[in-house]
Design a protein around this nucleic acid. Structure first.
Length: 497
RNA sequence: GGCACCAUACCCAAGUGGUUAAGGGACGGGUUUGCAAAACCCAUAUGCGGCGGUUCGAAUCCGCCUGGUGCCUCCA
């Protein structure tokens, strides 16, 4: 039996207990990208947030049908293609490919289906025809408009009133708030034959058609960015409910918060402050970006300062802390019964044992309560601290294994639900070195040569020379750690003031 | 003008009616170390933008105010 969970529903503006339409199943539709350029960190948040949702629900035993679409026919694609003098569908195909590369690099779970507008034209035409037939839409010169006045509760998702909307030109529309379901073809644009002549879908209709095709007239959860609530999702609701005659289109609406820029800046290519996912992942492990997103609640605004890069360094340091704590625990041995070890190793052992045993229920409770990843991660750090504290005991390494077993089991939950701690510590640390050194333009062989010199100096207790070399490494942002089990080094990370 | 949302320590950030307000980072002190680093310990918000109100009790509910954000021409 799947475990129950709560989620905030944009439709009702409050948290609710999830009630599936079909027992044990979750149908989830998430608005994917309009593919005319590479995905940036803003898109990344939505990608990671819904990846986390899907992961966690699966981990909790739900049978999830996850639909994430590609909008590959759209005004902006056409405009970008015209500018580059390429075919619009070829352009979108290229960026679908690149989106998939980014998704894989981010470690996203694969959607159950990834429909495209260009492959859903029949469904779209059928839906538009149904809307015309039912009197919710009208045609004018080959363009079909949705009549917002035809739906009494138009605006119920976003709380907008048609009469209060600030609207531009009316054009051939009856009401300024009416929106295009089908657009008459212009020369050079991709188009398909329809009952209203050659044309292409409007912006919102594709999601209505694709969600209906893959999830049915009414489905469980619809997700997307907060900026899509109006008009995109509002219009989807209107189209779907009017076309099928069934209400609601989706029972729960989940919206992720947006990245916020410092002092009212907007992120934009023209401003030169767009961070592409692929550029970031060249310099940082993907889990660092994931941790950065998940350390705050998915609905909260999340600050991003493109100038500093501090947020990624901080996230990376946090991630390393978790990996290293887990590594410490994994290296502990011993085969005594846990109770005996706990009894003989004192309060820190007892505290860790208790925290470890409580962890699963507390972690899952946080996740089940509207996906509170911030709280869940806080628990993981609390566990890491208790673990490190226990590890300070002389006998912990030889005998501590049984005591840390529950904590290790706890860390294992971060993979299935959050997509974190999903690799071996050594692999992770190696990835950090490769990516950070590359980003800083530091040659690894230089570091290794300096480390070798320093080892020689230390072996003869030439401390002055050893410290001089360490200063030299420090200047390259390399931190040296002399440990009992050998010398290690790592990259100095930036920290917030 | 309309709709929606946000404001918790030096920074980031959980907590939405009831024990000492999670967690991460910075700063300071300590244990440890050849010295460091890492790790750990201690200290750090009688306080949750401001003012009222409801309540035995509020960061948490209500009202007003201040400041900020998103959307209302297609942006996750």
């Amino acid at each position: 039996m799947p475990h129950p969970f709560r989620l905030y529903n944009t439709l009702t503006r409050q948290p609710e207990a999830f009630e599936p339409i079909e027992e044990g199943k979750v149908g989830l539709y998430v608005c994917g990208n309009t593919v005319y350029s590479d995905a940036h960190i803003g898109h990344g948040r939505a990608m990671i947030v819904f990846d986390m949702v899907v992961r966690h629900l699966k981990a909790r035993g739900w049978d999830v049908t996850f639909v994430r679409n590609f909008t590959d026919v759209d005004d902006k694609i056409i405009a970008a293609a015209a500018k580059q003098d390429v075919d619009p569908l070829a352009l979108s195909a290229k960026y679908i490919e690149r989106y998939r590369e980014d998704a894989a690099a981010l470690g996203l779970v694969e959607p159950t289906v990834e429909p495209k507008v260009s492959e859903t034209i029949d469904g779209i035409i059928a839906m538009v025809a149904a809307l015309v037939e039912r009197g919710h839409a009208y045609e004018n010169d080959g363009t079909v408009w949705f009549a917002v006045d035809s739906k009494d509760d138009y605006g119920k998702l976003s709380g907008q009133k048609v009469s209060e909307l600030r609207s531009a030109d009316v054009g051939s529309k009856r009401n300024p708030a009416d929106f295009a379901l089908w657009k008459a073809a212009k020369p050079g644009e991709p188009s398909w034959p329809s009952p209203w002549g050659e044309g292409r879908p409007g912006w919102h209709i594709e999601c209505s058609a694709m969600s209906k095709e893959h999830l049915g007239n009414t489905f469980d959860i619809h997700g997307g960015g907060l900026d899509l609530v109006f008009p995109h999702h509002e219009n989807e609701v209107a189209q779907s409910e009017c076309a099928t005659g069934q209400t609601p289109m989706a029972r729960y609406w989940m919206h992720n918060g947006l990245l916020t820029m410092p002092s009212g800046q907007k992120m934009g290519k023209s401003l030169g402050n767009v961070h592409l996912i692929r550029d970031l992942l060249a310099e940082y492990p993907h889990e660092a970006l994931r941790l950065y997103y998940l350390q705050s609640h998915y609905r909260s605004p999340l600050p991003w300062d493109p100038a500093t890069g501090v947020q990624m360094d901080e996230a990376l340091a946090m991630l390393a802390r978790l990996y290293e704590a887990r590594e410490v625990a994994e290296e502990m041995g011993g085969k005594e019964p846990a109770a005996d070890v706990v009894a003989s190793l004192g309060d820190d052992a007892r505290r860790l044992w208790e925290l470890g045993n409580e962890f699963e229920s507390r972690f899952l409770a946080a996740m089940d309560d509207d996906f509170n990843t911030a709280q869940a991660l806080g628990l993981a750090f609390e566990l890491a601290r208790a673990l490190n504290r226990f590890a300070n005991h002389k006998k912990a390494k030889k005998r501590g294994g049984p005591v840390v077993a529950p904590a290790l089991a706890g860390f294992k939950l971060l993979g299935p639900s959050l997509g974190l701690l999903d690799q071996a510590c050594d692999d992770f640390l190696e990835e950090v070195k490769v990516k950070r050194l590359g980003a800083m333009g530091v040659e690894r062989s230089d570091i290794e040569a300096l480390l070798a010199d320093r080892a020689t100096a230390r072996s003869t207790k030439d401390w002055a020379r050893a410290d001089a070399i360490r200063d030299e490494l420090e200047a390259k942002s390399i931190v040296v750690m002399d440990r009992t089990d050998g010398v290690q080094w790592k990259i100095r990370l930036a920290t917030a003031e």
